[in-house]
Amino acid sequence: MAKELPGYGTIDVPKDRVVPFGAVTPAPVCVQNMFQTSNWRIVRPVKDDEKCTRCLICYLSCPDACWVYKEEEDVMEWVNNFCKGCQICIQECPSGALTAAPELDFPDGVVRLDKPF
């Protein structure tokens, strides 16, 4: 009788860690909360509403759609969970309304998080 060889074991991924099959998810209407991508940001853009002319160039230039114009309040809103801190908006802003601030300056800065969101 031949000796029984080791098997491959089983793999049990904890339920709360299972990733959707092929990482395919239903397309979000507005934001995709399952895969947030701002946890490698080291700086974030901070806006000065006095200088901002609502020209929407930040909205046009952001590669991750992280600037949204809030019509009711007439202000630009920044999307925290998807901004990777690339600073394109800061470079492109024609009125100097945006500045780069280190994440360490914020109590909710991503560098302070134990877990990424």
Binding site: I11, V13, P14, R17, V18, V19, F21, G22, A23, V24, T25, P26, A27, P28, Q32, M34, F35, Q36, T37, N39, K115, P116
Partner: peptide
């Protein structure tokens, strides 16, 4: 509509690998 090929976080990488091995 669905999203294919998203960016995943490091903590989602290991289960993804495990599911492929499975």
């Amino acid at each position: 509509p669905v999203s294919h090929g998203p960016q995943i976080r490091p903590d989602q990488g290991a289960p993804m690998d495990a599911q492929r091995a499975q």
